[in-house]
C-alpha cells in the first residue's frame, strides 16, 4: 500500500538502503520532453532486503528481452529517476554503451554492486538505469554531485572492476544540467 514503509521480514538480509524499481517506455516518434517523460515512468516495487530484491527481480522480464524504447531504473527510495529531482539536480551519470545482447548480464552485475555497497562513495549513489534502444543498449549509474571528482573516479573504477568491462569500452560522464540543456540523455 502507498506510503507503508517496506520492512525487512525476519530472517532476511537487510540492504543498506531501500530501493524502488521503475519502468518507462517511450514511443520513439513522440519527442522527448520532461513532461511526457514523467507521465511515462512508473514505479512498481520497493525492496528492503536481499531476499525481497530477488523476489521482485526474478519476476521482471530481462532487459535484453525487451524491444523498443524501454528503461528499467533501480533507485534509492525517495529519489525519482528524473534529472529535476532534488537528489539529482547537481548530479550526473556514468554512461556505458553496450552492443546488443549484453544488457541483461551487465544490468544484473551493476545492481548487485549497488545493493552490496561496493562503490564506497557514501551517500553519492542515486540509482542505476538500463536503457534498451534499437542500435545499442545503455547502462548508467547516477550520483548526486557531478563535480565530486573523488566519487566519480571511484565509481568509474568500481564499474570497471565489478562489470569486468572490456578495456576498450567507452565510458562517459554526463551531468544532468547538460542533459537538460540538450534535452537528451545520451
Amino acid at each position: 500500500p502507498k506510503g507503508k514503509e517496506v520492512m525487512v521480514p525476519p530472517g532476511e538480509h537487510p540492504l543498506q538502503y531501500r530501493y524502488t524499481f521503475w519502468y518507462s517506455r517511450r514511443t520513439p516518434s513522440r519527442p522527448a520532453s520532461t513532461h511526457n517523460y514523467e507521465q511515462n515512468i512508473r514505479q512498481f516495487g520497493t525492496v528492503a532486503s536481499v531476499e525481497q530484491f530477488w523476489r521482485v527481480y526474478s519476476h521482471i522480464v530481462r532487459p535484453g528481452d525487451l524491444t523498443g524504447y524501454s528503461d528499467f531504473h533501480l533507485f534509492k527510495e525517495g529519489i525519482r529517476p528524473l534529472w529535476e529531482d532534488d537528489a539529482n539536480k547537481n548530479g550526473g551519470k556514468w554512461i556505458i554503451r553496450l552492443r546488443k545482447g549484453l544488457a541483461s548480464r551487465f544490468w544484473e552485475n551493476i545492481i548487485l554492486a549497488m545493493l552490496g555497497e561496493q562503490f564506497m562513495v557514501g551517500e553519492e549513489i542515486c540509482g542505476v538505469v538500463v536503457s534498451i534502444r534499437f542500435q545499442e543498449d545503455i547502462l548508467s549509474i547516477w550520483n548526486k554531485t557531478a563535480n565530486d571528482q573523488l566519487s566519480t573516479v571511484r565509481i568509474r573504477d568500481t564499474l570497471r572492476r565489478v562489470l569486468n568491462l572490456p578495456p576498450n569500452t567507452i565510458m562517459e560522464y554526463k551531468t544532468h544540467t547538460d542533459s537538460l540543456k540538450d534535452n537528451s540523455s545520451f
Binding site: 537487510p14 543498506q16 536481499v50 531476499e51 530477488w54 552485475n109 548487485l112 545493493l115 552490496g116 555497497e117
Partner: peptide
C-alpha cells in the same frame, strides 16, 4: 556508521534461498 556490504557471490547465493522464492 557501519555500512551493510555484500559481495556479488553472497547476493547470488541468496537468490535460491527458500525466503527468496
Amino acid at each position: 556508521g557501519t555500512r551493510i556490504i555484500y559481495d556479488r557471490k553472497f547476493l547470488l547465493d541468496r537468490r535460491n534461498s527458500p525466503l527468496a522464492q
